[in-house]
Design a protein around this nucleic acid. Structure first.
Length: 479
RNA sequence: CGGGGUGUGGCUCAGAUGGUAGAGCGCCACGUUCGGGACGUGGAGGCCGAAGGUUCAAAUCCUUUCACUCCGACCA
């Protein structure tokens, strides 16, 4: 991080974090603005990250028995209205189709903001017996939510995500599923995205529309602001009752199944940018980087340089790595800066000198450290370096999270942190939504992130009202 | 939805008191270069976000509108 600033075209994070973010998004060619309000164009480099995310998560879902399905893009209004809390939650953000083929529709159709209702309608027709349960479904789709203000990846009117929807015979089993899937997200964030994060349960005030309980993963961005990084909901049998989904149990009793849903979105790409990036641009976790190794031939007009570079690339590819040789006629210096900006985890410099020595220069994007490595057994050295980048990122995020997590036992202390120390605040809470409201007003936007799974007993009383505390909350500002 | 900002070649911007568009970078061609954003020569590219209005004349003044962006409220 103490590297000198090489890319003049990116605004420094310390000067203007928001501007830095949009600079990185555009300069690294992740996304571009489109002619459609609030919607972005995800460019090939950004989309390739999403594809890698999908591949990894999809395998995790399937390993636990989930099957992929596809539900319609449109939801009839009557269907959306079956569950009261759900409608109220989404009504303000719905886009409606009122015309089709030049004719006004008899019933308008919502462009899906989420698909609980469609799944419920389908479940009603396919669930009849305990033998039909559980149903473990997932879909990779786009959804539309009419947002007031948008920002690439973090909040756009249309975004891509996966939504898992499951039905279970018992509450116990459904609750296990909810926590199991949150754990999948937590593992994925850590193992694949190199982002250690806080997990826990949302308060009543912050939970999903229609849910009994909402669990969340809350990564902290480099600047101390939280991002709701994924959610897993337990619905009880509320939707099942609203949609009249029943099954006959083993004891010949008719029961309502218990439901869950869980999702993560392209917002995770925003999380990657904002947790790992630096003033030279993006830093991609090796597991999702579209290009893991950029090979820069130096003096490539010299006999044998390009050939050797291609040969090295092929050897690395054979070892399962994603490799790019930049044969363009830009100068090596330009290429160094370019791949740093695009966050390629490992760079190899290969010139006549190296070839003569049977070696090349390996540079880590995480640390900037340059080492000379032998071309013999290069794949192993590169893999080691990629692991090194992953670990360095995890360590850096862990430190940032620790350094920017504060504790408050009095309201004054809380206000001081909220005003002067960007990050998370741990504090005790009485359980009353009124205190959450009061904190939000007093601090200009600090909200409860979650009741973490690992609570501490910081004080016997609520930091806000002084009544006996029920839980420890993690608080923070959010994107 | 409230408050602020910005719209001029692909990008960043310059265009006082209105007179019909410039620069740097990028792009294309050729040549020389190549170990931290190389250089030379030549070339292409914009009626100034859009619509009205004032004027002999509008990138410039007025009105409206749209888009983007930042800060709030709302949400993944």
């Amino acid at each position: 991080m103490a590297e000198k600033k090489l890319v003049e075209s990116i605004t420094s994070m310390d000067v203007d974090f928001a501007q830095w973010y949009t600079d990185v998004v555009r300069k690294a060619e992740l996304a571009d603005y489109s002619g459609v309000k609030g919607c972005m164009i995800i460019r090939p480099y950004g989309y390739a990250i999403w594809e890698n995310i999908q591949k990894d998560l999809d395998a995790r879902f399937k390993a636990l028995g989930h099957e992929n399905v596809y539900m319609p893009l449109f939801i009839p209004e009557s269907l959306l209205q079956k569950e009261k809390d759900h409608v109220e939650g989404f009504a303000p953000e719905c886009a409606w189709v009122t015309f089709g083929g030049g004719n006004q529709l008899s019933e308008r159709l919502a462009v899906r903001p989420t698909s609980e209702t469609l799944f419920c309608e389908h479940f009603r027709s396919i669930i009849h017996s305990y033998r039909d349960l559980p149903k473990l479904y997932n879909q990779w789709v786009n959804v539309v939510r009419w947002e007031k203000t948008t920002r690439p990846f973090l909040r756009t009117s249309e975004f891509l995500w996966q939504e898992g929807h499951t039905m279970h015979a018992t509450e116990e089993e459904a609750r296990e599923e909810v926590l199991r899937m949150l754990k999948v997200y937590e593992d994925f964030y850590l193992e694949t995205l190199a982002i250690p994060a806080v997990t826990g349960r949302k308060t009543e005030k912050e939970k999903f529309a229609g849910a009994v309980e909402t669990y969340t993963i809350e990564p902290m961005m480099h600047n101390g602001v939280a991002l709701q990084g994924g959610t897993s909901h337990y619905f009880g049998d509320g939707f099942a009752r609203a949609f009249d989904i029943t099954f006959t149990d083993k004891d010949n009793t008719i029961r309502y199944p218990h439901q869950t849903s869980w999702g993560v979105s392209t917002r995770m790409i925003g999380a990657i940018i904002m947790t790992h990036g630096d003033d030279n641009g993006l830093i991609l976790p090796p597991k999702v980087a579209p290009v893991q190794v950029a090979i820069i031939p130096v003096q490539m007009h010299k006999e044998g340089v390009l050939e050797k570079a291609r040969e090295v690339a092929d050897a690395l590819r054979a070892a399962g790595l994603r490799v790019k040789v930049d044969e363009s006629d830009n100068s090596p210096g330009w290429k160094f800066a370019e791949y740093e900006m695009k966050g390629v985890p490992v760079r190899l410099e290969l010139g006549p000198r190296d070839i003569q020595n049977g070696s090349c220069v390996l540079v880590s994007r995480a640390t900037g450290e340059k080492t000379v490595v032998s071309l013999d057994g290069l794949a192993a050295s590169v893999q080691e370096a990629l692991d090194g980048v992953h670990n360095a990122l995890v360590e850096r995020v862990r430190k940032n999270l620790a350094a920017k997590t504060f504790t408050a036992t009095t309201f004054d202390e809380f206000l001081d942190h909220a005003a002067n120390h960007p990050g998370f605040i741990k504090a005790m809470w009485c359980g009353d939504a009124a205190c959450e409201e009061k904190v939000k007003d007093a601090t200009g936007g600090v909200k409860s992130r979650c009741i973490p799974f690992e609570e501490e007993q910081l004080s016997p009383v609520c930091v806000c009202c002084g009544r006996p505390a029920k839980h420890m909350l993690v608080w923070g500002r959010q994107y």
